[in-house]
Design a protein around this nucleic acid. Structure first.
Lengths: 302, 302
DNA sequence: CAGAGTTACGCGGTACGTAACCATA
DNA sequence: TATGGTTACGTACCGCGTAACTCTG
């Protein structure tokens, strides 16, 4: 009476319902009709309910049978998904892959790669999160992600592996109406002190704070992300270096103009990074495809 | 390799996880440890994955085991619910009970009874729907509900059973500012023709339309439900009979006043109705409790 | 040695195949 | 007679209990 419902039972019921007869279901399941008679009869008197109306022309579900299968079908589907999950896990596909994406990079290439991955219809859940400039290492170290895209600078030694995805250069770009744009000569440190700078807040929680783009300015405006910084500089709120690849269109339509600045901003090499211990196929696949994606950066190779 | 996951397997895994050891789980399941070793080992090499890290102090789930059980636990719960459903069905509780509630009645007693029923924690889904005045029979006949509350008039013969819940009387009640309120004498049919009537639209789809409260008026305003009709008459938009029990407060605070009208409106006896063929315990229970509820109607009995 | 897990072995039940039987179109 | 369901019966396997072994605290 207890635990009489098994997955095999449900599969048998479902097969009978689908084919409309015990005989048809027996074929589907590579069994003989008498086996199904046995199984169904046993279940029926375990439950104390008739599940099929038998006729000489086939079998149809009773109300009880319908109720059972209506709730049973989703269970079978869940089990099928679970089996698929386990097969994938056995084949080396991790059940979940978390990607941290530095906002300094466009999301388009990432989304494209994610889309390609989803086409494989694997039971691998992909989660991605945008992190502030420089937040990738932090996310990786604190195990909030498995892959960080767009990390740079010193590589925390030992447990991580990296792959270069390109170089990032900066331009000192400001609104054409800004006083510094009209200067007519290279901008000096002295000039900079006279005007506010726009600074992206660093949301890194573990690594020491690395302020990117801080000049010695009399005022600074903190903004949450690079898009805001670009917007702020377009409005002439302040000045600062911006990643070349993100402001091509702004330079073209004149929202921003490039100026020479005496305080240089070193080029940055960006990487994808992940833990050496993680060896899932999903991670491999993503490292490979993210590495080959076009992030709009300068590349040394090819 | 296929269909290696069974409910019994999952139950065993869950017991081991809970107790933290094969020995403890064996006790829980009234089995011997070797049985679990057998079961788990078999599953493990069916899946090709280690599910537990065995130590001399117990057993802990591996990543694979965690994945399996994380998806497996909801499946076990679903099966438990399913078994409960079947037990209830076997005991005579139908899986779903649909109640049609005539808007002429307050929902409060209904909700109270539904609340009591839910306290029994049976796997019976209760659905209720409000139907327009007189829509109960229609809903019942077309199998859109199992119980109709507040039906009246002729009883479609044969296949239905009914139980009286009380009588419904009507008052000719209108806004105190309405010209007919100031008439100073009983209102005649002639008087009525001079002013708009408020009529509740009948949403009945199968039975012939029975217009409730249609006078021969030069104008009629169709409203979707009784609440709207009351509101409309309070605003002086028109006149008509209203159920006594629904306008007690309006009469008390003076939003409506009662007037005598020469065109009478017969009292109505209201019933609960259901199909004779339906014999579920839920239906029984609801008929009994809905019949005993206080609908604010006049009762003949005790 | 107490308590964990595993292995070897034997038994009982049960799910299933074979086969014979019955009923309908 | 072709098709579908049931019953009777024999069997193979599988899950489980018994028992002996191993390892740690």
């Amino acid at each position: 009476m207890h635990n009489s419902i098994t997955l095999e039972n449900l599969r048998v019921l479902e097969a009978i319902r689908q084919s409309g007869s015990f005989a048809g279901a027996a074929q589907m399941l590579h069994k003989v009709p008498s086996a199904l008679t046995y199984t169904v009869s046993k279940l029926e008197d375990d439950l104390g309910l008739l599940l099929f109306e038998r006729s000489k022309k086939g079998a149809r579900l009773t109300a009880a049978g319908t109720l059972l299968l209506e709730q049973g079908r989703p269970i079978l589907e869940a089990v099928a998904r679970l089996e698929e999950s386990m097969r994938a896990f056995e084949a080396g596909w991790e059940p979940c892959l978390r990607i941290a994406h530095d906002v300094i990079l466009s999301t388009k290439p990432l989304l494209q790669v994610v889309g390609e991955f989803l086409d494989k219809e694997l039971p691998v859940e992909v989660a991605y999160d945008s992190v502030a400039v420089g937040g990738g290492w932090d996310s990786l170290i604190s195990e909030r992600c498995d892959i960080a895209i767009g990390v740079s600078g010193d590589i925390p030694k030992g447990e991580f592996e990296v792959q270069e995805i390109g170089g990032l250069s900066f331009l000192f770009a400001i609104a054409p109406t800004h006083p510094l744009a009209l200067l007519g000569r290279p901008i000096s440190a002295q000039d900079l002190r006279e005007y506010p700078s726009i600074v992206v807040s660093d949301s890194s929680r573990i690594l020491p704070k690395v302020s990117t783009g801080i000049f010695e300015s009399k005022q600074t405006v903190k903004v949450p992300d690079l898009a805001s910084k670009i917007a702020a500089q377009c409005m002439g709120l302040g000045v600062g270096y911006l990643p070349t690849h993100l402001i091509q269109d702004k330079l073209k339509d004149g929202s921003l103009v490039e100026r020479e600045c005496e305080i240089p901003r070193a080029d940055l090499t960006l990487y994808i990074a992940w833990r050496k211990t993680k060896k899932g196929k999903g991670l491999r696949w993503f490292v490979e495809h993210l590495g080959a994606a076009d992030w709009g950066l300068s590349r040394n190779e090819g």
